[in-house]
Design a protein around this nucleic acid. Structure first.
Length: 413
RNA sequence: GUGGGUGUAGCUCAGUUGGUAGAGCUCCUGGUUGUGGUCCAGGUGGCCGCGGGUUCGAGUCCCGUCACUCACC
């Protein structure tokens, strides 16, 4: 059953593999896939104007339900006319469910190593100076706001209500993200919990969709967990795909959770193998150049990641010859572009020496120019991969791009 | 001129009863994968103003000296 205003149409397939190009149709425009979705957690891609985002080729923006619920509040965004209207982004929008915050506010991703989190008290310290701000139970998650310490409770229903108010074209089901440190037993429990939550998300989503007549259709993606375990991943995917409420299932899927570089392609492959061709697959939180090729080859269609913008704000910039820090002494008198082959606003108007100066002087424009470049670099890379699939040169392009990017001659990056 | 204070890393300073020096910032180099990120980690860098003395040993105690600074003449 097709959904009004939302559809995915595959175009070209990668011979012998799951990779493909295609088009996602949303009420606010189309997305050519594979595509990189810019992250604007708090209804803004930090440091850049929406006009700049559009100019650099971003096709869509992803915001976060947890952050916008806390500030300014989902009702405000709704009253403004929805996320896109509110932030002046006319194109397609996504919202994440807040599920990831179960992890990032909970055990603290990569901040706490090998700590057994079960059975700890309420205010346990999870790292030097860090107090655990989220606790999971079977019904939902209790958060302590990182802004003002107030208590909040997210359930699948609450997340869906918030996301419907935010009004993004594509929403994600509320899930529990785990780490590779969790035990197999815990991973099983988390997957089961995520599945039960998925049913509730879909049910609430259908209820809200029917209730909100006249509003643009909002698509809902289920999220696959299961960490590095093949049986869990496959079962979780099958269970999600089998779900239907009132004759309607998920519109697409997110692949989330614990992923390592080494098994990323394999894990995406397991999930994709259990999914139908006519629904898009979003890989959550990935943006390293080699990861794109691997994930796309194995069937991922869209990506989102904070890395390009976060890293840019700390002076790390991408080039065809690898990433480098523009705030190092070597760039002080370098009057060439960040990347001579880049067509972004930053590279066509400014020099490394100028960016070096802006970063050293802690000027705001440093973040803006750096982010414009990094977002463009990543968007373009994925665009180029898409083009390479369409014209049959994927493997050649991969070999050329990665060979150069990771060559690390290091001499004059 | 007299009396007091201060001289320790590029900068601002800490150095306990004497046991061959530390912090923050700067500087240098990394890192950042569904944003708890104006952030994290590591590193370079000192004949402790200078010269004597006491002591096994002095940034620490004593004498002298220079510089800066405050107050009073």
């Amino acid at each position: 059953m097709s959904s009004p205003g939302f559809a995915f149409t595959p175009r070209t397939s990668l011979p012998g593999r799951a990779g493909r190009t295609g088009t996602i149709q949303t009420p606010h425009g189309t997305i050519q896939t594979p595509a990189f979705i810019a992250v604007g957690t708090k209804a803004t891609v930090k440091a850049v104007l929406p006009e700049s985002l559009r100019e650099l080729g971003a096709q869509a923006v992803l915001a976060n339900a947890y952050h916008l619920y806390l500030q300014p509040g989902a009702d405000i965004v709704e009253a403004a006319g929805g996320l896109g209207r509110f932030m002046n982004w006319p194109g397609p929008t996504f919202t994440d469910s807040g599920g990831f915050q179960v992890l990032s506010l909970g055990v603290g991703f990569k901040k706490v190593l090998a700590m057994n989190t079960s059975g700890l008290g309420d205010d346990e310290v999870i790292a030097a100076g860090k107090t655990r701000l989220a606790h999971v139970d079977d019904e939902g998650v209790t958060f302590t706001s990182h802004l003002n310490g107030t208590k909040h409770r997210f359930t699948p229903e609450v997340s869906m209500q918030i996301q419907h108010q935010l009004g993004a074209d594509i929403m994600f089901a509320f899930d529990e993200c785990t780490t590779l440190m969790n035990t197999r037993v815990y991973q099983e429990q988390a997957v089961e919990r995520t599945q039960r939550w998925a049913v509730r998300c879909l049910t609430e989503h259908q209820r809200l969709t029917q209730e909100r007549v006249g509003k643009p259709y909002q698509a809902l993606f289920g999220v696959v967990q299961g960490a590095q375990h093949e049986d869990l991943r496959r079962q979780a995917t099958r269970d999600l795909e089998a779900l239907e409420v009132d004759g309607r299932g998920f519109d697409g899927y997110g692949i989330g959770g614990a992923l390592e570089k080494e098994n990323l392609g394999t894990i995406v492959g397991w999930c994709v193998a259990e999914l139908p061709d006519h629904k898009p697959r979003h890989l959550l939180g990935i943006s390293e150049p080699d990861d794109f090729f691997t994930a796309i080859e194995n069937g991922a269609d869209t990506f989102d990641c904070v890395s390009p913008s976060r890293v840019a704000r700390n002076a790390a910039l991408y080039t065809r010859d690898g990433r480098f820090n523009v705030n190092t002494a070597a760039q002080r008198r370098n009057f060439s572009a960040v990347d001579e082959e880049c067509d972004c606003y930053t590279c066509t108007h400014y020099t490394r020496a100028y960016l070096h100066h802006l970063f050293k002087a802690k000027e705001m424009l440093a973040s803006t120019l750096g982010t414009i470049h990094n977002e463009r670099f990543i968007v373009r890379l994925v665009d180029d991969i898409r083009a390479s699939i369409d014209n049959g040169s994927f493997d050649a392009f991969r070999a050329e791009f990665l060979g150069r990017y990771y060559a690390r001659s290091a001499v004059d990056r």
